[in-house]
Design a protein around this nucleic acid. Sequence first.
DNA 1: ACAAAAGTGTTGTCTGTACACCCATGC
DNA 2: GCATGGGTGTACAGACAACACTTTTGT
Lengths: 233, 233
Amino acid sequence: MIEEYKQHDRLLLAIDCIIFGFDGTRLKALLVKRGFDPEKNKWSLIGGFVGKKEGVDEAARRVLLELTGLDNIFMEQLHVFGDTNRDPGSRVVSVAYYALIRIEDYAEELMIAHNAHWVDVKRVPPLVFDHKKMLRMAQERLRQKAANHPIGFELLPEKFTLPQLQLLYEAIYETELDKRNFSKKILSLGILNKLDEKDHSSSRKGAYFYVFNRKKYRELDKQGFKLNTITGL
Amino acid sequence: MIEEYKQHDRLLLAIDCIIFGFDGTRLKALLVKRGFDPEKNKWSLIGGFVGKKEGVDEAARRVLLELTGLDNIFMEQLHVFGDTNRDPGSRVVSVAYYALIRIEDYAEELMIAHNAHWVDVKRVPPLVFDHKKMLRMAQERLRQKAANHPIGFELLPEKFTLPQLQLLYEAIYETELDKRNFSKKILSLGILNKLDEKDHSSSRKGAYFYVFNRKKYRELDKQGFKLNTITGL
DNA sequence: ACAAAAGTGTTGTCTGTACACCCATGC
DNA sequence: GCATGGGTGTACAGACAACACTTTTGT
């Protein structure tokens, strides 16, 4: 340790994760009933602490992995929340991350073990500390991101239909879209491959399944695109 | 202190600031020659540490104030840099902020006292640690932000001309713009008030000065706008 | 009178938006 | 055969992009 550094304070550094999922109709966030004080039994985001020997991003991945058993998940740093009084238990600075997972990938037994629940983002109960603020900021960030990157697909199963994809965008942006304009725009990006197979689970006629073209997907993910039409952003 | 928290590690939490300025032609960043080890005498962003009793945003404001004497500055959190090996002196997690100031507001004596220099963002020398990465990320964020918010004005003097404003956008986006389309677009936002006075410093004919209409400016700052035409984003 | 930068308009093209009907199928 | 959701095309309007000449004035 260099001399210059010794005089400074050391702080607890926490991670909080906003985990989004999509159930086919609604955008959901994963919340837990907090298992310890302060605020025991209140609704909370999942979280943990950053250890001395791990990087912050690394800690975030670990926290997500511990709770969901999932790795290689889309996850991005959101913001640092560092007000002195945000956690009444102690001075804790928290780095918030948001992640996108496929609901069906998340094993039921882990959910039960952690007392975790998927909650509609439009019907979120009161949360501890500043977690509600984190969630709202994450929603806003998700909107921003999805407007320029083909990110929404992280939330859908491998195969999905255009109506499903449209419902996802409608859930993210809390709006309604014209299906003709939607399909025109999305298909024009050239990142979807149509399959011969149809999904008959929600209509008699059935809707064609699509998968994405991972190559073009990656290109677009880097370069970004415009979904003004869809997102209104 | 709550029991549950005691077992966790405590870390040094630093602040680093990317401070942008505009000299009329080029976008610049404020850099200092580091006054202490490690990496003494190397180029660095300005920074400091977060104290036990201050919020993180508060610490960032303090650091900026100490260096520049300026308060009430546009400043936003950028990102947390938390790799374990980013600072060889010790484990330090750093929260980066970017700020926009008017170069002429920054008192010369403070610059000298802190060994600070304005450096063209296109000609940045090697920087300590991961500071270069911070700077690049800040530039990218500035581009994003300026595409949707009337933020560029934070960098200009009270009165400015359209050609000056255009140069600023050209510097931020490292591109060239058509002045006819530029003035059309900017004036259509309705946030500029034309003065009778002209600036003759760069041409015989002289260019009209403008100031912004603070009321509309604030509305747009909240709602956001689109400068696709200009920014290419 | 000329050099140097400021100011100003038009047109074609493209993109977005609004809108309505037929299709396929299970019951 | 009918009810349900899926799929497709067109026309109008507004925004963007490309482009060149005139104005002002200090020297």
